[in-house]
């Protein structure tokens, strides 16, 4: 299990990283924390010709509140975001979800943006970004744009990012007064990828439910405040619409059951935590 050959570029500026991506014709890959890319290189599931290490580029290591949004730069690790002092009050959903991303020993290297770029269907950070209605900041040598999470995740490990673009930052909308949040996940062991994960945001009379681990990407639905049988029906429809499949870890039926029962419980919890 050793990676195949590649050139390694330690980019010192954003412009250098952009240039390598632009000139490589899709043969280059960004190397951030390496917690997903390195296993893929070792297993030879990925065979890029060039790796561009972005972890020494100044200016990408910032966590900043901009208006109602937390902007998290590309070098910020999952551990650094967890240690942001206002996380539990201003981004309670992430405070609940981040401890589920791997282990302390991987969160210390793995980046927030890297998880979004990797777009694993059961990953917690993409799920939270979608539930909160966040955005991804992309830039290339010639362009810069923001893409809503809703449009960014396209399929299993597939996103709207073009080969010459890198993610400079992701933007998480902060809690507004009265919001309620909750997150829960079922996996075989803590730190394993989710079989099903559920994130809920209650705002005004809308309940947004986002589900990870079932479809090929995280999926969210907005419901008007519902209760009892109406809520059960809505969750049941949502569960079926995700087109769950059987795999090594769980059957499709078990996944649908989890969406229904967890969905209800997590909505309850989010309502209780409003404030």
């Amino acid at each position: 299990m050793k990676p195949a050959r590649f050139d390694y570029v330690r980019a010192e500026t954003l412009a250098e990283a952009h240039a390598v991506l632009a000139e490589s014709g899709g043969e280059a890959r960004v190397l951030a924390g390496g917690q997903s890319l390195m296993p893929m290189l070792s297993m030879r599931l990925a065979r890029p010709n060039i790796l561009v290490d972005i972890m020494r580029i100044p200016g990408l290591a910032e966590i900043a509140v901009e208006g109602g949004v937390l902007r998290v730069g590309a070098r910020i690790t999952q551990a650094q975001l967890l240690a942001w002092p206002d996380l539990s009050t201003r981004l309670p959903l992430l405070a609940a979800a981040l401890p589920w991303v791997g282990h302390a020993q991987t969160r210390s290297s793995g980046t927030v943006c890297g998880s979004v770029a990797h777009a694993d269907p059961s990953a917690e950070i993409p799920l939270a970004l979608l539930a909160l209605g966040g955005e991804v900041e992309l830039s290339s040598r010639k362009t810069r744009r923001r893409v809503a999470a809703q449009d960014f995740f396209v399929g299993t490990m597939s996103t709207a990012r073009r080969d010459d673009e890198l993610i400079e930052a992701v933007r998480f909308p902060l809690k507004t007064p009265g919001d309620g949040f909750a997150f829960r996940e079922v996996g075989r062991r803590h730190g394993d990828f989710a079989i099903v994960s559920v994130a809920v945001l209650v705002r005004g009379d809308t309940v947004r439910v986002a589900i990870g681990g079932v479809a090929d990407r995280p999926q969210a639905r907005d419901f008007r405040t519902l209760d009892g049988a109406a809520l059960a029906d809505a969750l049941d429809q949502f569960a079926w619409s995700l087109e769950a499949r059987d795999d090594l870890h769980a059957t499709a039926r078990y996944r649908r059951d989890l969406v229904r029962s967890f969905g209800r419980d997590v909505i309850e919890e989010a309502r209780r935590c409003r404030g």
């Binding site: 299990m1 390694y8 390195m38 070792s42 020993q105 991987t106 210390s108 290297s109």
Partner: peptide
Amino acid sequence: EHGVCGACTIEIDGVPARACLKLAVQVE
């Protein structure tokens, strides 16, 4: 060699990290 077992865990710049998920050239 894919980050799961933890046997290769060391400390890099004060934080724990998997040595099998880093390239030697990265820790210059």
